[in-house]
Design a protein around this nucleic acid. Structure first.
Ligand SMILES: NC(=O)c1ccc[n+]([C@@H]2O[C@H](COP(=O)([O-])OP(=O)(O)OC[C@H]3O[C@@H](n4cnc5c(N)ncnc54)[C@H](O)[C@@H]3O)[C@@H](O)[C@H]2O)c1
Ligand SMILES: NC(=O)c1ccc[n+]([C@@H]2O[C@H](COP(=O)([O-])OP(=O)(O)OC[C@H]3O[C@@H](n4cnc5c(N)ncnc54)[C@H](O)[C@@H]3O)[C@@H](O)[C@H]2O)c1
Lengths: 231, 231
DNA sequence: ACGTGCTTGTGAAAGCATGCACAAAGTGGG
DNA sequence: CCCACTTTGTGCATGCTTTCACAAGCACGT
């Protein structure tokens, strides 16, 4: 490809940066709770577990919110990041699949604190429908479209068994939900423009196992083996 | 630590590849269940939701396990990836914090199927200790060291409240657990050589919110605005 | 008003990751 | 045995991320 079409190059915050903003936000809120007024990139970076140059570059994408010689004003930065992430508005979330995991999520208090409100619970099991979980009635999945429309849901969380996940995802999309968080161990197929993120515990464990095995293989004879094997 | 030893450039599989291997593995196992014997990079890539060139490059890091003109033998590839990920051995997992989430994990059947065995449950609440969850006795967190030693735990999962997570992590590390999966919304501080992965639902939702807001901002006047803003 | 000391914001370099495109290598039919 | 066809494995170009290193900017004390 030589002449790359004009590519309007939307005001872009790099994806890697977006993924770290919530981490900074949390660290900042902890500082705020402790009454700290300003913080240096060094201190905030250390609280967030990243390199300070990276932190500064990340924040520079949002604008110039620091003061040289001083640092960043905590409260102002909290506001700027919140705004950038869209947390100054309220997001209604629906959870589909009220089993072990769905119930844990529904009962979890930590979401409401940050702009997310669980607005609907959906399940296919007639025995489940009508029950009250975390002060919400579980509705039948067949009512998905209605529920989404009437409660203004814009984020869908899928905690159904793997076999049902694609179907639920498709229905979410058809109902106008363009942001999906998927816990089922399947690759979801959705149209362009729909944003799917997955949380997959099995995968995380497998990655841990890979590194653990690496460590175990090498222990003691690491240097020698690595050296030899390259010859 | 800091003083990077010569680093003999260990036979390295890129981290991005490692993170995808479990996805390929799952897709392959689905094919296997359907009785498929061989699969092309194109087909497997599509099942795994990635580009086929990427898939081939990923697999090439494990060795040359394909046959040109034919594809990959499913069973053989399953074995090779499993071996590379360390799934041919058994990993004993301990869960600390048997609340909403810890219980959901403990009751989840999907781990055992892939080399992971939940070997111990730990909690600090006296009312919880002694109860039986998923056919395991909940032990008191004070026994962490004993439990880790006696059950051979090598992976620790943390589902305690945020405030307790660092303490539990430190104790896991001191007991010799060098792989930790953390669900609590805090940045854990651990010595070098210890591998921590985090699963953070709040962060995932916030990333979804960011993109959702982007879409909403731009809708309708996207093209014009993007173009104009660059001038 | 000016110098000192600290910290930000950002070029520039190096390191990773992605995806194209194609030669090399295998299969199967004639 | 050879040819047409398929699909792998990988060199290369491109773009994204991280990190270094330092000039520019600001606060504060004198
Ligand atoms: N529980 C865990 O710790 C855990 C861990 C990792 C992954 N997961 C994954 O999360 C998902 C849920 O796990 P779980 O343990 O809660 O399972 P579960 O069986 O306890 O719950 C699943 C729920 O989904 C409902 N359901 C089934 N089909 C549905 C449909 N079409 N529409 C709406 N609801 C439907 C069921 O009635 C049930 O209530 C699974 O895909 C699982 O693989 C769970
Ligand atoms: N439940 C969810 O859906 C969800 C979602 C996102 C994040 N999280 C995070 O996961 C963690 C657990 O969430 P939860 O909803 O299960 O909380 P929970 O309060 O239901 O359970 C926490 C459990 O940890 C135990 N505990 C406290 N201190 C301990 C210690 N020092 N050692 C061992 N156990 C200890 C408590 O006794 C309790 O049983 C929290 O950090 C939470 O922020 C949970």
């Amino acid at each position: 490809m030589t002449s790359r079409p004009p590519r309007p190059r939307e005001r872009g915050i790099p994806e890697a940066t977006v993924a770290r903003l919530p981490v900074y936000l949390r660290a900042l809120q902890a500082l705020q709770d402790r009454g700290t007024l300003t913080v240096s990139s060094e201190a905030l970076a250390s609280a967030a577990g990243v390199n300070s140059a990276k932190l500064r570059k990340d924040l520079s994408h949002l604008g110039s919110y620091g003061t040289r010689g001083v640092g960043y004003e905590v409260e102002y930065l909290v506001y700027q990041i919140s705004r950038e992430l869209g947390l100054t508005q309220d997001w209604a979330v629906a959870i589909a699949g009220i089993g072990n995991l769905g119930r844990a999520l529904a009962n979890y208090g930590g979401f409401g604190t940050r702009g997310f409100r669980i607005a609907a619970l959906l399940d296919a099991d007639p025995a489940m429908v009508g029950q009250s979980v975390a002060s919400l009635d579980v509705r039948h999945i067949d009512n998905l479209e209605d529920v989404v429309r009437s409660t203004g849901v814009s984020i869908g969380v899928i905690t159904t068994p793997a076999a049902s996940a694609q179907g639920v995802a498709t229905r979410f999309v058809q109902a106008g939900v363009a942001s999906i968080l998927n816990f089922a161990p399947v690759v979801l197929n959705v149209p362009d423009g729909v944003d799917v993120r997955k949380v997959d515990l099995s995968i995380e464990l497998q990655i841990l196992a890979f590194h653990a095995q690496r460590r175990a293989d090498g222990d003691g004879r690491d240097a020698e083996r690595a050296g030899l094997e390259l010859m």
